[in-house]
Amino acid sequence: MSKILLVEDDEIMPKIVARILPASEYELHHVSNGKEAFEKLDSTNYGYDLIITDIMMPYANGFEILSKVKNRERPIPVIIVSNAGNEDMIMEGFKLGADDFLKKPIIPAELLIRVKRLLMKNK
């Protein structure tokens, strides 16, 4: 069972992601803004195998989450899923150590494959 944290302020996206990643294999937790994400991470002592995050959210944006997660001893893999997809942003994301970048609208199969691959790599 892999534990995945989804940080996303759109109301529909979590439902979609929950369908794409079967519940039998993935334990998906959803929070809807940067503040909640930090609270969740702190309370679980960063106990996630993967983080899927949007960029633009209230309180703290995806980049901040990214930089916090990546500056730890054992960084958690991060996939950015965002509707803001200009080149600068993607570059910035990778500079901060993002493992993957998907632009909305996403292709479900693609998300599934990338999640699987990242989890394999970090086993």
């Binding site: 759109d10 609208p105 693609e110």
Partner: peptide, 10 residues
């Protein structure tokens, strides 16, 4: 709204 989030077969 759904279509703004997914494409492909879905």
């Amino acid at each position: 709204h759904f279509r703004r989030n997914v494409r492909g077969n879905m």
